[in-house]
């Protein structure tokens, strides 16, 4: 009787990943230190952007694209939003957080409000203008976002999340305004537009890592460390496979992995 035909190794690999996550989480909750996550240059760029906006007395805009709550990118963007909200509250810089996904909007609002309240800056939190639901659907929201950026003359743009075709439209406006732009997405087709027009871009997994770095939640950090282990093993398996293919025959390893 074939069990998990063609998927046995797939399943075992994931069981190992699950065990790693579980073990690391236990370690971290019992107080042991996890490997340190390196600070990414993009995070300094966020500080720099907000600092510039503070100096100029102009607002910072935060957007997290069109991903829903089921998108890992949206989840990662929340940590960045919280960080940005706290920085803005601390320096009394106006923050405009925009959403165009109905389910994401209330979560963003909760995050920003809590951050302001925790820093004792509840007065600076404007319930109408700080977090805005601008439109739904990418066409309408892209033009609404462009309009908001122009009208408010934003000095710092943080675009973190699952962005699609609207990228070209909004990053160009930001560049024309002379704003410092920091972006992060895992949607590879949009990365060229971000890289070319933003001052700093968090590429793919870097974006998740930034989220985990800024997050207070140890699950996100554990996840990142476990994935690093998985990638290290992947690198080793690929090296072995390529060497076997070069000096012998990699088909056994191939068949094994496909078993």
């Amino acid at each position: 009787m074939p069990i998990f035909e063609g998927q046995l190794i797939t399943m075992i690999a994931q069981l190992i990943l699950a065990a790693t996550i579980f073990a690391l989480l236990r370690r971290s909750r019992s107080g042991e230190r996890l490997p340190k996550i390196r600070r990414l240059a993009g995070l300094d760029a966020i500080d720099e952007a907000i600092g510039r906006a503070t100096e100029m007395g102009r607002p910072t805009i935060f957007g997290n694209g069109s991903g829903g709550l089921n998108s890992a990118q949206t989840i990662a963007s929340f940590s960045v939003l919280e960080y940005a909200a706290r920085s803005c509250a601390r320096y009394d810089t106006q923050l405009i957080a925009v959403s165009y996904v109905a389910s994401v909007y209330p979560v963003m609002e909760a995050i920003v409000r809590t951050s302001y309240l925790e820093l004792g800056k509840g007065d600076s939190y404007d319930p109408v203008n700080t977090v805005r639901f601008i439109a739904s659907g990418w066409g309408a929201s892209a033009s609404a976002l462009q309009g908001t950026m122009r009208r408010e003359r934003v000095a710092a743009c943080l675009f973190m999340g699952s962005y699609y075709a609207e990228t070209t439209m909004i990053t160009e406006v930001g560049a024309n305004l002379g704003a410092i732009q920091v972006a992060g997405t895992a949607n590879t087709a949009q990365l060229p537009f971000m890289i070319s027009s933003c001052d700093y871009t968090l590429i793919g997994e870097e974006f998740y890592a930034a989220g985990a770095y800024l997050s207070k939640d140890d699950v996100q950090k554990v996840n990142l460390v476990a994935l690093d282990y998985a990638k290290a093993i992947t690198v080793i398996v690929i090296i072995i496979g390529a060497l076997l293919a070069t000096f012998g025959d990699a088909s056994h390893l191939k068949n094994f992995l496909n078993y």
């Binding site: 398996v237 690929i238 390529a242 293919a245």
Partner: peptide, 10 residues
């Protein structure tokens, strides 16, 4: 998995 095995190149 399929992407890993496809990278086993001589």
């Amino acid at each position: 998995i399929s992407q890993v095995t496809a990278t086993f190149m001589p």
